[in-house]
Amino acid sequence: MAKENKEELLTLAIESSCDETSAAVLRGGRTILSNIISTQIPVHQKFGGVVPEIASRKHIVNIMPVIDECLREAQVKLSEIDQVAVTYGPGLVGALLVGVSAAKSLAFSLGVPLIGVNHLEGHIFANFLSAPELEPPFMALVVSGGHTALVDVRGYNNFHMMGQTRDDAAGEAFDKIARVMGLPYPGGPRIDALAKEGNPLAIDFPQALTEKGNYEFSFSGLKSAVLNYINSEKMKGHELNKPDIAASFQHSVIEVLVGKAFQAVEEAGRDTLVLAGGVAANSGLEGRLREEAEKRGVRFLYPSKILCTDNAAMIGCRGYYQSLSGRFSDLYLNAIPGLGLADCDD
């Protein structure tokens, strides 16, 4: 690498794992020069969820304008870019491939290193962008559409998995239940909003794997219980009390997440808990974690709203720290739709 001072490295990052096309430029690991996000939410709304083929079609149209815009906003010339970071999983394969292919081609054309980034690690690293003073070690609670996990972040390239989801992720349960209640996509924020008007203790929904020391998650039982409840209410001819259902469901999810998160913080001896992933935008979860953190004297951080969504800046941040320990990719990099979180120690 040409630059002696790593803080001056310019990273171009690309993210296209689901329904946002995003590109960003970072200086060093923490300074966002631009972070352009083109969302497709309105396109997928009428289908009640993300349609993979349509998402891919949008990405191939959006990718170059988004990259062009991110350079313009950063006031950086493409030739000044030192490295290219890209999400290679998890996500929708066809969507990921657009970003991966463009990133590989840019890295090759510019003659700069390529860095394949795990989207979930990117979500954790979004916290470094929101909180400049944050440094490892800390505990991370990852709650996104497809994943729920507790990760002990011991260093920038040293993670230890405390546990992750066995079946459905929390985000999936939110989406499915929102759909059954007839709420428009994306369902998570709608449930969060409805829950504020409802009674969280109105309906007793189950909480799984709550025994001490178990850091795995399971939300499929909860999902079924809520769906069964809705069906039986409908069959009885009762009008659904949507606020109460939303609040009670959300309460079950949140209590499991909060309980395990603080147990993990304690077991690992951490003083900081960070929240990461799309569901981090859930105000109910954020509020409960904050309350519990205050009670226990634990520092609690979560990314700003925009950094909770799928965005390229967090990919650039993760990519930057990977580059410090030489974790680059070659031009054979492929998309891995089912990529998970795993232990890592560089």
């Binding site: 891919s56 292919s101 840019l106």
Partner: peptide
């Protein structure tokens, strides 16, 4: 192939842009 076409086109566009 939709996916195949997009892989080729994304690479071609990014290269044309960079060079």
């Amino acid at each position: 192939s939709f996916t195949g076409l997009r892989i080729g086109l994304a690479a071609a566009k990014a290269m044309a842009y960079a060079l």
